[in-house]
């Protein structure tokens, strides 16, 4: 069996492990809630992780770049506003490699296959880094935008009040 075939075959097991490892980055007291609360509105974080990680995994295996992009964005958008160092926020990508190593017949694959997987995960990691950076950038944009908005009204008004010269004087 090729590596890709095995990834497909064992997808549910690998995915489960992957989801668990993502949740494991939260305080232990919280993990139960993130996993057990099934209502998507009462537990948006858990819901997003569960569904988007599944999409991400499928996209990863099927090499569907659109799927990868959109699902990775959804996950990292959450991570980017939580209590994580940047490295910790995207570390879950690297954990996929470990999980695959442990869950498959790793030794039976050819070097080419292993290298290809390695490359794929590396590029996923780089993509995650880019997305994380975009999210953070967005946060700073929002900050600036908000400050601007607060004073914009005043500026507009100031222009009106002070800039129109009165020809009669």
């Amino acid at each position: 069996m090729s590596l890709v075939e095995e990834l497909k075959k064992k997808s549910s097991k690998i995915l489960k492990k992957w989801q668990d490892s993502l949740i494991a980055s939260y305080p232990e007291d919280t993990q139960h809630f993130l996993k057990k609360e099934k209502d998507k509105f009462a537990n948006p974080v858990g819901y997003i992780f569960k569904n988007e990680l599944e999409r991400l995994y499928n996209g990863f295996v099927d090499e569907d770049q659109d799927k990868i992009n959109s699902s990775l964005t959804e996950i990292i958008r959450v991570r980017a506003v939580q209590d994580f160092f940047p490295s910790a926020a995207i570390n879950f990508i690297l954990e996929l490699k470990e999980i695959i190593k442990n869950e498959t017949n790793w030794e039976s694959f050819s070097i080419e296959e292993k290298e290809a997987l390695d490359k794929k995960i590396t590029s996923l990691l780089l993509l995650a880094f880019d997305i994380y950076e975009q999210c953070r950038q967005k946060l700073y944009d929002l900050r600036v935008h908000e400050v601007k908005k607060h004073v914009m009204g005043l500026l507009k008004m100031a222009n009106l009040v002070y800039e129109i010269p009165d020809p009669t004087k």
Partner: peptide, 8 residues
Amino acid sequence: YFIGSGDP
């Protein structure tokens, strides 16, 4: 804040 952060 708990739902969104997971901070106990």
